[in-house]
Design a protein around this nucleic acid. Structure first.
Length: 359
RNA sequence: UGGGGCGUCGUCAAGCGGUAAGACACAGGAUUUUGGUUCCUGCAUUCGGAGGUUCGAAUCCUCCCGCCCCAG
């Protein structure tokens, strides 16, 4: 086995964080012919941005780790793609009154899109990342499964890899717990062992969305906040600052807490109501990506990260998929992903277009 | 300027002589590769103002200020 691996060339996507660093370390120990690559996304910008996960800092840290492990390190300039595929879409979606998930787009277009293509072009057999997910194969092919550390499960963001790319991807951390990863990093004396978890949208940077939208020349207009009856309850700062199911930030005092029910981009209005009005029977999804032979009749649907999946029925409808929950769910949000599971296995996913059977 | 009612945290609102509930909002924190949800914590030494009665008042009395309603 080890002898086989020696011949395999693997490129590890390195963000400069603990996870991808340990992923590299483990692969190196296993004997792969390894190299590290960091995507330069051109978002260091001025001092205002201060990107955490993909800035100059990241490149430096990744390089230090590669040096420590003793593997080559490449820096690939994906700034243009980042701007077009991820940031551009992020802004466009928000202006439509939807809530995009840039991490999904980044995985689809950059990490497992461009970067994977590039790695193949450079002669690598595999692309590895520090994501927490498992890949297992049986007679029917390769399946993506939830990782050992359920608390760090990142399969929600990984479904867009697509079925055909699965055999070219490695997730060395899938069987480990986060604490083990940190311990491994510390024991190996990696320079990034104590680094904090990444969070926030990497390209928005520190601080607020407002400065991000300003920098990108978006004209944001304040407007009315109304209830289902059309009564004006308050004003919003601009549609882009809200998402469905959101409670805070409305500034409206009311006998009960109010949640965002709808975002009407055309009317520049936000509709709010009580929590129970947030429920839907199902949703329609597009931009479907199936990791199996086809959509099963039943599955478990996860409609937002960190929300537990719920039993549902599936109905294919042309290039769309109907997901019908056994029990009504709150805050179905257009633009977010719905990911479908069969037990621990990821069946596939898509982008939510709208809710079905709203109140 | 006849009569009646009301003024407690940003908003709504308990309290009715015993030493300021609660809700919403807001702020901070926890959690987290999407600024959603959820959870935790904080948030009126003070009750429109000034006097008075009382051991003690937001609660009783007086006057003033400000709103609202009904009359003429």
């Amino acid at each position: 086995m080890a002898a086989q691996k020696k011949h395999k060339k693997v490129l590890v996507a390195m963000s400069g964080g603990v996870d991808s660093s340990v992923a590299a370390l483990l692969l190196k120990k296993e004997g792969y012919d390894l190299a590290g690559a960091t995507m330069c996304l051109g978002i260091a910008e001025d001092g205002a941005g201060e990107a955490k996960c993909c800035g100059a800092d990241a490149v430096g840290d990744a390089r230090r780790v590669c040096d420590a492990i003793g593997i080559p390190h490449y820096v690939l300039d994906f700034a243009a793609a980042m701007e077009e595929k991820v940031i551009g879409r992020f802004i466009a979606e928000y202006r439509r009154g939807r809530t995009p998930n840039p991490c999904v787009d980044c995985n689809a277009c950059l990490k497992f899109g461009l970067l994977l293509d590039r790695s193949r072009a450079m002669g690598f057999d595999y692309l590895a990342t520090g994501h927490y997910a498992l890949l297992e194969s049986d007679s029917r092919g390769i399946h993506m499964r939830k990782p050992a550390d359920r608390g760090k499960d990142q399969t929600y963001f990984l479904y867009p890899i697509g079925r055909t790319a699965l055999d070219a991807v490695l997730f060395p951390l899938g069987g480990l717990m986060k604490e083990e990863v940190r311990r491994i990093a510390a024991e190996a004396g990696l320079p990034v062992a104590g680094k904090a978890e990444s969070q926030d949208i990497c390209f928005v940077g520190r601080g607020n969305l407002s400065t991000f939208f300003e920098r990108h020349g978006c004209d944001i207009h304040p407007g009315e906040i109304v209830n289902r009856s059309g009564r004006v309850l308050g004003r919003h700062r601009g549609i882009v600052y809200y998402t469905i199911g959101q409670r805070g930030g409305l500034g409206i005092s009311h006998p009960t807490p109010l949640y965002v029910l709808e975002i009407d981009a055309a009317a520049n209005r936000i509709v709010v109501g009580n929590k129970d009005e947030l429920r839907s029977r199902g949703l329609t999804a597009s931009a479907l990506i199936c990791l199996q032979d086809g959509w099963p009749l039943r599955a478990a649907a996860k409609i937002r990260y960190r929300k537990k999946e719920v039993p549902c029925r599936l109905e294919a409808k042309g290039d769309k998929l109907l997901v019908l929950f056994d029990e009504q769910q709150e805050a179905v949000t257009p633009g977010q992903s719905v990911v479908l599971y069969d037990g621990d296995t990821v069946v596939g996913g898509g982008i939510i277009e709208g809710a079905i059977g709203e109140h």
